[in-house]
Design a protein around this nucleic acid. Structure first.
Lengths: 211, 211
DNA sequence: GTCTATAGGAAGATAGAC
DNA sequence: GTCTATCTTCCTATAGAC
C-alpha cells in the first residue's frame, strides 16, 4: 500500500534556464536545449541554434565562445538544479525515513519535470572538454554524497535495515536519473505519480526484513 | 542479508557482434561501436569508422547503405541479445520469486558486461529513421512484457505483495538499463556484484510488508 | 551586439577502375 | 569487394561593417 506524501512543496517552481542573462544568451540556450534534446549534440548545428533563437549564425559567438560552451552551461545548470532539489529535501525535519523518502520523491519529480535538460545533462557529457567534464563530475559526486549521508543517518538510528548502503544509493539515484531517458509529458504517468511510485519502492528497499 | 544466487549460467558467453557476417561487415560494426560509444553517433565520421576497420571510406558502402544502417544493426542486435537473456531466465523452473530474481540478475549483468553496445543501443536511438526506430520500439515492448508476465504470475500465486506491478516493472528494467550509462570495467563493482545487489533490492521491493 | 560574407575544412555518399 | 578520386553540401568559427 503506497504511503502518503507527507513532504511539503519546498520552493516555487521555475525553469532552470530562467537565470541565464542576458536575453540573447537565454534565447540561444533555450534553442540549443531544444536541439540537443531532439537531435543530440553532434546532430545539432550552430546555424540551427541561431536560427531558432531568431539570430544570425555569427551572433551566437558574442554570447558563447563555442558550441561546447553552450552544452557546458546546460549541463552545469541542470546538475546544480538537481543538486539544489536534493539538498532542500535533505534539510527537512526528522525522522530520517521521511527525509530520505522526500529526497527520492524530489529527485525523481525533478527529472520528470525537467526531463529535457536532464536528458541533455546526463547523456551528452562525452562532448564536453576534459576541464568542463571534471566540473560536472564534481557536482555528480556531491549529489551522491548528499543522499548517502542521509541514508547512513537513518541506518545509525535503526530506521533502516540495509547492509549495502552504497548499492541502495546507486540504485535510488539511478531510478531518478533514468526517468530522463524515457519520460514524456504525453505519457500515461504524471511526474507526481511517478515520484510517488519510486519513493514507495525505495522505502520498500530500506524497510526491515520480514522474519 | 543478500540471498544467494541460485540461478545457473544459462548459455556460453559470447560477443554480441560475433554473428555479424561477413568479416568486413563485422570489422566495420566493431569500429562503429567503438566510435559511437566514445564520441556518439553525431560525433562519428564514416571516414573514422572505415579507418579503424582498416579500409577505405568508399568500401564501407559495400557493406552498409549508410551510417545510420550501422547504428540500426547495433541497436537491433543489442536489444535482441538483452531480450534473449531475459527470456532464458524466464524459462527457469518455479517458484516465480526465483524466476523474477534470475531475470533481474541476468538483465543487469547483461548491461554491465555489454555496456558498450547497451549504451549505444539505449542512447543513440534519436538518430534512427522512423522505420528503424519503430522496430527497436517493438523489441522494447517485448522486453517489458516478458518481465511483467512473470511478475503477474508471482502475484497471482501470492509470492509477491505489490499493488503497482507496472511501477515495479518500470523500475526494475530502469535499474538494469541505467547500468549502461555509468558502468566501467575499471570501476570498483564487478558485473556479478552489481547484478546481485540489484536482484536483492528488487526482491526487497516485492516481499510482503512487515505489519 | 547585431548583421553579411566568407574562410577553410570536413562531412556523407557515389563513380568507375581493377 | 576494394581502391582512389571526387561531387556536393554543410560545418564551426572569424572578419569587418554598422
Amino acid at each position: 500500500m503506497p504511503q502518503e506524501n507527507t513532504h511539503v512543496e519546498l520552493s516555487g517552481r521555475h525553469e532552470v534556464l530562467d537565470e541565464v542573462e542576458p536575453l540573447s544568451a537565454r534565447k540561444l540556450a533555450n534553442a540549443a536545449l531544444d536541439s540537443f534534446f531532439t537531435a543530440g549534440y553532434g546532430g545539432t548545428t550552430t546555424r540551427h541554434i541561431s536560427e531558432q533563437a531568431g539570430m544570425s549564425t555569427g551572433s551566437l559567438y558574442s554570447s558563447f565562445r563555442s558550441k561546447e560552451e553552450i552544452l557546458f552551461l546546460l549541463a552545469r545548470l541542470g546538475h546544480e538544479s538537481a543538486l539544489r532539489a536534493l539538498r532542500e529535501a535533505a534539510g527537512q525535519s526528522p525522522p530520517a525515513a521521511s527525509r530520505v523518502r522526500g529526497m527520492i520523491y524530489e529527485f525523481t519529480i525533478w527529472h520528470a519535470r525537467n526531463h529535457r535538460i536532464a536528458r541533455v545533462s546526463q547523456y551528452q557529457l562525452a562532448a564536453l572538454t576534459p576541464q568542463h567534464h571534471a566540473i560536472i563530475a564534481g557536482l555528480r559526486h556531491e549529489i551522491e554524497a548528499v543522499l548517502q549521508t542521509e541514508v547512513e543517518a537513518g541506518v545509525a538510528q535503526g530506521e533502516f535495515d540495509i547492509d549495502d548502503i552504497k548499492g541502495f544509493v546507486l540504485a535510488a539515484l539511478s531510478l531518478g536519473i533514468d526517468v530522463a531517458r524515457w519520460f514524456s509529458p504525453e505519457g500515461r504517468l504524471t511526474p507526481e505519480a511517478l515520484a510517488t511510485s519510486y519513493a514507495d519502492l525505495a522505502m520498500r528497499m530500506l524497510r526491515p526484513t520480514n522474519h
